[in-house]
Amino acid sequence: MAHPQAPQLPPLRPPLPESQRDLPGSRGEHLLQCAYGTQDRARRFYRDQVLDRLNDEMIVFVGRMEMAFVGTADAAGECDTTFRAGPPGFLHVLDDRRIAYPEYRGNGVLASLGNISENPHVALLMIDFVRDLIGLHVNGRAGIVDDAELRAERPQLPQEFERGRIPERWVVVHVEEAYVHCRKHIPRLQPVARNREWGTDDARRKGGDYFGVRADQGATR
């Protein structure tokens, strides 16, 4: 006769020292700072570099970015990272505590939006690879807003960002942390003219099956 399996108890979590409480960041990073002896360096960084809003320099930086990396996770913590790009201003600063970026018709999977609908925590990473070789992290909570709804609040939103397409909806990120990503290992890149296939559903021409997954799937069926 099989014995019922004993319930799995969560691991004990050591208490944080008083000096590590009420700091930005996660409990896990604070515990590891204690374990690895980096508390003083971390506290200097929190004090000197971490804001709960965007300052004027950050707002200017966001406004000239042409790309961003977006990290999300679902309710179970399964992660997804995606890439968003557009002309300067596609990351639209609504105010010093809100950034909005557009969502267009895509492959229909809606991975990032699906995660946000379950778990609003989102991380943005913007990097200037060309001029200043510096990055900006923005962490916060996001919501999904229809284009018409956001445009009613902000009539000055651009009507289009690329090739006549207008956003179907927007992700509005409410800033909780904003801090620098240092330039030490950021490579310098040189912009070149882009030749892309627009207005086509041909997977090969637009790079949709670049890795040959469709062929692999067909071989296994």
Rank of each mutant, 00 (worst) to 15 (best):
M1T: 14
M1E: 12
P4T: 15
P4C: 10
Q5A: 11
A6G: 11
Q8K: 02
P11N: 05
P11W: 05
P15D: 07
L16M: 02
P17A: 02
E18P: 03
E18C: 14
S19K: 11
D22Q: 11
L23S: 03
P24L: 13
P24S: 05
R27I: 14
E29P: 11
E29C: 04
L31H: 08
Q33R: 01
A35Y: 06
Y36T: 15
G37C: 05
G37D: 04
G37W: 07
R43A: 14
R44W: 13
F45W: 10
F45K: 02
D48E: 10
V50D: 00
V50Q: 00
R53S: 05
R53E: 15
N55E: 05
N55R: 10
D56A: 13
D56V: 13
F61H: 05
G63V: 07
R64H: 07
M65R: 08
E66A: 12
F69Y: 09
V70G: 04
A73M: 12
A73Y: 10
D74K: 02
A76V: 11
E78N: 15
D80W: 06
T81N: 08
F83C: 09
A85T: 04
G89C: 06
H92C: 10
H92N: 11
L94N: 04
D96C: 14
R97F: 10
R97N: 03
I99W: 01
A100V: 11
A100H: 02
A100R: 08
Y101P: 01
Y101H: 01
P102D: 04
Y104T: 01
G108R: 12
L110W: 08
S117F: 00
P120W: 03
H121W: 08
V122N: 00
A123C: 11
F129I: 01
V130W: 14
D132N: 13
L133F: 06
L136C: 07
V138P: 03
G140R: 10
G140E: 09
G140Y: 04
I144Q: 04
V145T: 05
V145M: 08
D146L: 13
D146V: 04
D146T: 10
R151P: 07
E153N: 12
R154V: 15
E160W: 09
E162M: 08
G164T: 04
G164W: 02
G164E: 05
G164M: 01
I166G: 12
E168N: 11
R169I: 06
W170D: 00
W170V: 00
V171H: 02
V172D: 00
V175I: 09
E176V: 03
A178F: 02
Y179Q: 01
Y179N: 00
V180W: 10
V180Y: 06
H181K: 04
C182F: 09
R183A: 03
K184I: 13
H185C: 13
R188C: 07
R188W: 08
R188M: 05
L189S: 09
P191H: 06
R194L: 13
W198D: 15
T200K: 15
D201I: 03
R204F: 15
G208W: 06
D209H: 01
G212Q: 11
G212A: 02
R214K: 13
A215L: 10
A215H: 05
G218I: 12
G218Q: 13
T220F: 15
T220K: 09
